[in-house]
Amino acid sequence: MHLDHTDTIHPERHSASAARPDGSRRALRVGLGGPVGSGKTATVAALCRTLRDRLSLAVVTNDIYTREDAAFLLREAVLPPERITAVETGACPHTAIRDDISANLEAVEDLEEDIGPLDVVLVESGGDNLTATFSKGLVDVQIFVIDVAGGDDIPRKGGPGVTTADLLVVNKTDLAPYVGSDLAGMARDAQEQRGELPVLFQSLRGEPGVGPVADWVREQLSAWTATAVLPA
C-alpha cells in the first residue's frame, strides 16, 4: 500500500459522459467566465443563496494566484465548506477551463463522489480576458459575466465569450448612471453579436437581483434532466 493511501474510491472517467459510475445522472455543470471584477464570484454567491434550499449545489473556483474566491465563498458561508473546491491554474486561468481541463474535471467529479448526488456544479473561471470560454468537455452550459463599468463597448467588441456563451449577463446595472454607460446600446450591440442567445441585465445591489439568472439555471437543469442520455 502506498504512503498516502486513502480508502475513498473515485472511479475515473475521461469524458463528459452524462452518467456517473453507478449509472445515475451526474450534475449539470455550469461555467461562469468573464473579465476580472465583473462580478462572477458575487453572482455565484447569490446563486447559491437563491438555489441552495431546493437544489444540491457545489462550486469549483479557479483562482489565478490565491484562494481569494474560494475564501470569499467560505467566509460568506454560501455553502458548507465541503461543497467548495479551489483549483490552481498556474497563472493561466483559460488553460485550466479550455485547453487542459483535467484538474477541473477531477474537482467536479470528486465533489460529486464525496458529497453524493448533486443537481448543479458551478465552475467559476478565474478573471480573464474576452476570449476565454469553457471547454464543452468540462461544462454543459456557460454564462459570461461582464459589467457596465468595464466599458459599454464590450458587447460591440464581441469575442468568443460575449458572442457564444449560452447566457450573457451584464452586471452592475445600478452603476450605469455613474459611469455613463448606455444600457440600451449595450442591449442592442449584444443582440447583434448573439442573435437568439439570451442576455440578462443584473444588479445584485437591488432589484431584480440574481433572480432572472437563477431562473435561467433552473431552466437549464430541467432541460438537462429531461434530455441527458444515460447509457442503457
Partner: peptide
C-alpha cells in the same frame, strides 16, 4: 491521475484501466 485520464482517452489499454482501478487517486 491527470495523465491517466488523458492517456485512457488517447491510448486506451486494459493495463491503464487496471492501474487506474488500483490507484484511483493517482499513481
Amino acid at each position: 491521475r491527470q495523465l491517466m485520464r488523458a492517456a485512457r482517452a488517447t491510448w486506451p489499454d486494459p493495463e491503464l484501466d487496471a492501474l487506474a482501478a488500483a490507484r484511483p487517486k493517482g499513481a
